[in-house]
Design a protein around this nucleic acid. Structure first.
Lengths: 227, 227
DNA sequence: AACAAAAACGAACGATTGTTTGGTTAAGTG
DNA sequence: CACTTAACCAAACAATCGTTCGTTTTTGTT
């Protein structure tokens, strides 16, 4: 069970114990808000992690795959994060933040219930299909992929999706249609598009979103005919 | 780099070399079609692989996770399959076969274009959400997860999905609706349901499928009103 | 009863995994 | 300028990964 014991120290017990960020932050709001250190590759680290997680999923993405493209060593990751799951959580948080901002801005700029939903879907799908964006991670990775972070990820996800609940609630729909069904249908289709959409195709994400919404508009209250 | 060299042979080069199944089969159609061996746990192996792949995905599912529940040792898998990817391919093939059979039977038992589509969707979603079924693997695992088998998996998947192309092509739709959009919307929503559906919920898979199709029926040619 | 093949076992293999740790360097502060 | 510390390196770690291989047991055939 034991291998070769080469000889570097571990003499006393006063280990340095760094990397206690991520939870203890945003507490006292000390004086370092603006400056930070110059040689800090945390942003590039997050960018790369987002890209690799989005492309290969969580389990298939190794720490070395993430860290190599930015010329960092695998151990250096653990100065910024305690575990690989914490790294995912950070990317996921940023992803939810970005897609939420995009969608909220789109909603506010639109008038009328169907227009607001359409604008939100355009923003959602654009984010989801943009592989440089953190948002695609939020859609691709299931919370259960990272058991220790699963609870937080689920909360983040639900908080984001609640927007669409509200949007659908405001639609003037025929009494026979279940609003939850309509939301699941629409968002499921958009989220699943990650599996078939390829960049450079004929249709832009924005147009796809508009068409999806368009296929559901007939459920408005003014339409009554049908089979 | 080298560990302890304990002493079991490897004297000559006449190794046994088994496990050449899977590709070389179905060639001469020898005499063993019916009998097979009694103590053969290949079916249980496939069952378990399907379950673990469907639950955790391909990368997160280790060979030992698959093999332990049936009391098999990890090395024994390689009597039946050459690689882990080959195991996935076998499960995937069986999954496509089963879901295809279910859907085809449902289609044949229904009359009328919308009824046929609905029947197909009911069968599709029931299979997709049944965690004991191989079909859920076909939906959950992306071909790109197993690079060496990706080409075959894609072919299988496309061949299956072509059914829905045909069903949608036969719908009496308004001229303004793009049939590909409608298919992507419907199937995307169904496939994505794997991420939110939990067994024992209020709605059965069959009812979900019917509702999804119902939300799209208004795009029939006889409906013209609306904004 | 003799033999062959199927279907495993048992025990490792080398490679890769996420992670730890002591040391090093550069940037910011007094 | 000395000094602190954020940000990393270098090198390993134990555990687990997919896989190999000689051997053994079980089963069917003759």
């Amino acid at each position: 069970m034991l291998r070769d014991n080469r000889g570097h120290g571990m003499s006393d017990g006063v280990t340095v114990k760094k990397a206690v960020r991520s939870k203890a932050d945003s507490a006292g709001r000390s004086k370092e808000t603006a400056s930070r250190r110059a040689h800090n590759r945390l942003p590039q680290l997050l960018d790369q992690a987002a890209q690799v997680f989005a492309k290969h999923g969580y389990a298939a993405a190794s720490v070395r795959d993430i860290v190599r493209p930015i010329g960092m060593l695998p151990g250096s990751l653990y100065y910024h994060f305690q575990t690989k799951e914490d790294l995912l959580a950070a990317v996921y948080r940023e992803g939810v933040q970005r897609i939420s901002a995009n969608v909220d801005a789109a909603i506010e700029a639109a008038d009328g219930p169907w227009q607001r939903l359409e604008a939100a879907c355009v923003a959602h799908l654009s984010s989801v299909l943009d592989r440089t964006d953190y948002s695609s991670v939020v859609i691709r990775i299931r919370p259960s992929d990272a058991p220790d972070a699963a609870a937080e990820l689920s909360v983040l996800r639900n908080a984001y999706e609640a927007r669409f609940d509200k949007l659908v609630a405001e639609l003037p729909l025929d009494a026979s249609v279940n609003r939850r069904d309509l939301r699941l249908l629409l968002m499921g289709a958009m989220n699943w598009s990650q599996t078939w959409y390829r960049e450079g195709g004929e249709l832009e994400p924005e147009e796809i979103a508009r068409r999806f919404v368009g296929l559901l508009k007939l459920n408005s209250i003014e339409n009554k005919g049908g089979s």
